[in-house]
Design a protein around this nucleic acid. Structure first.
Lengths: 192, 192
DNA sequence: CAAATGACAAAAAAGCATATTTGTCATTTG
DNA sequence: CAAATGACAAATATGCTTTTTTGTCATTTG
């Protein structure tokens, strides 16, 4: 469909993959389908990605970056926020984003959940970024600790039920927000 | 194989189900197999359980009661313990039990994980018991709160990563114990 | 007559033969 | 000659048939 140098093509392939994924779903998509959308032979895709799973991982990473990490980074950068409020805004945004896309972009969320199960690498990179930003928020604020990274990790793990895809089926419950506030109450008390 | 009045038989069926489950695994077991083990026709089993899934739920409940709830209740009843130490011993036992059986009784743990996903009822009853005992531990100790149940729920949710079966794949990591201690540090600070 | 049986229809799973997809690479193309 | 193609074997998936399993119930048995 479109022709351009290799640097662009990799992004184009990922873009086409995302589209196709949304259209056909995780268990129907084939790299042949993606090639068809791009109007190339499937061999071409294998010049850019070693395997189908690498292609799907690539699409997931792109999706995570644009849908989760980017808006999260904006909250992270809010210069006017500090300490607990900033941390709460950050975690709350994370939770809202995950829960939003679990509902509104189910097909992509599904593959993200799958990748979470079998590509430790990508996920731990993703989590790494988030914990780093949380750690930075903690150390910039008035919260007193000599291991902001440990604290950030603890907060991340303690709130897992509200942002880890394995718990997505529990997010439909009406009580979920209250349950978060209960946990947050605990964390707030611990950090004050 | 064995003959006895109906009251016993239900337990016998569950026992045979558990054995068969351990032997053939979740995706190979049929109620015909269980009937064969008991030396009865499969129709007989349907006099005691409405459906296959009810049979499997029954076996899971029995398993949960004997492997998790029973030893947990013993910790709960330790008269000499109080407050944070008691709570920590309780939660830590819960975590150790889950992680132990995930490794050592994989087939039964697997069906417990499955039931967790699709039988809200059984699981929420199970969780209910645990939160109630935690709540009781909290209110008996020196921890000051006017809603021990809320606090218990918060502690349970904050530690989910360490006892919820959806996270079993993360328990192999060597860091898991440290990560729990980080979260526990948070909780300990919050409740003091 | 309470409890178990086994015959039965409907649903699900297993088995198998065929078609598609994955991944590689020698050849082609711009 | 870098990038793309398409022919190919091996691995997967699909569709169809046959078998097993599930769940019910009228009948049998102790």
């Amino acid at each position: 469909m479109e022709k351009s140098p290799s640097v662009l093509t990799k992004q184009q392939i990922l873009h086409a993959t995302e589209e196709t994924l949304r259209r056909f779903g995780l268990d129907k998509i084939s790299v042949t389908d993606v090639a068809k959308v791009l109007g190339v032979s499937h061999g071409t895709i294998y010049r850019h990605f070693k395997s189908k799973s690498e292609l799907l991982e690539g699409a997931t990473e792109k999706w995570l970056d644009s849908k989760i990490v980017k808006p999260l980074t904006e909250v992270y950068q809010k210069a006017e926020m500090r300490g607990m409020d900033h941390l709460q805004a950050y975690i709350w945004t994370l939770i809202q984003l995950k829960q939003h896309y679990a509902r509104e972009d189910a097909e992509l969320f599904k593959i993200y959940a799958k990748v979470t199960e079998d590509s430790a690498e990508l996920v731990s990179r993703h989590i790494g970024i988030i914990i780093e930003q949380m750690s930075e928020i903690i150390s910039r604020g008035p919260i007193k600790t000599n291991r902001p990274d440990q604290l950030a990790r603890a907060v991340f793990h303690a709130t897992m039920r509200f942002h880890h895809p394995a718990h997505a089926y529990e997010w439909k419950s009406a009580a979920i927000e209250d349950e978060f506030l209960e946990v947050w109450g605990l964390i707030r008390k611990a950090l004050s």
